[in-house]
Amino acid sequence: MKNRLLWPILALIALLLLNLVVTPSFFALRIQDGHLYGGLVDVLKNGAPTLLIAIGMTLVIATRGIDLSVGAVAAIAAAVTCVHIGTSPDVGTALAGMAIALVLCAVLGLWNGFLVAGLGIQPIIATLVLMTAGRGIAMLVTEGQIITVNNDAYRQVGAGFVVLPVSILISLAVLGLVALTTRKTALGMLIEAVGVNPEASRLAGVRSRTIIWTVYVFAAVCAGIAGLMISSNVSAADANSNGLWIEMDAILAVVIGGTSLAGGRYSLTGTLLGSLIIQTLTTTVYTIGVAAEVTLVFKAVVVITVCLIQSPKARAALSFRKVAVS
């Protein structure tokens, strides 16, 4: 386990050091009005939605699944909440809107779970349905408009501070909760069992379907919360751009963190590292003054490098050792 995380840790340290060289003030933290500011805080804040989605994605991937629809689900959550809030400045309206959105997300997760666990459709294609249709649904909700809101309660989710930005606290809380739940109960082991061998798990009496269903619902709810963060941060819902490609970032974070797309063993710590690497990378590219769009090139390079380092075949080829082909 420790070995698996070695490379992501090194990659993250290297990126952070690079930032230190380029921007000596990168690690500096300052407190202003009781709020913590600084380069590291920015990384965490901007990475919070991705981390949140990646946590859900980790569990989905552990069951041999994948959820491509999370970006669209995030957009739907943002759209529903903002349309519900409308011009109202009330706390109650904001809370109700968010509650409605998250319940809706849970339903969408149920739908994905139904396709995967109920009908037995390949996860990548089952969630492709909602990935395609979901954005259409979000646009249907907003009628193709960008919905701006002016609601202080809602703004707290993505832009608020309790010493640290609220979004960071939410993501870390969810991470902690998931880590605790999977480790202190048998959920983690059962998820891995289902991921490694679904049929054997079924015959051992594991409620595979329930578990698969649970992780998709959880992933969708995480996506919903992330969608709220994103839209709350700018006080607007844009069905076209909210959460666009965030599923890819989340999957990358999971894979960089050492969880195999083939399912089975997973690492939440790895996912945290993966998210941080991706976000730090984005920040780094920005701070060294390259066009933000070019981040994509760096992302590609990092992904391939980390994957190559983790691939047993690549390692064997590099060290010129003979591989046992079985």
């Binding site: 994948i66 990548i124 999957i251 769009e293 590609a300 994957c307 190559l308 690549a314």
Partner: peptide, 22 residues
Amino acid sequence: KFDIQPFIVTLAGMFLARGLCF
């Protein structure tokens, strides 16, 4: 050669190609 899932590799390819555009 390196037995990495096509999904991830072509995802990296997707990022790379689009990044190169910019």
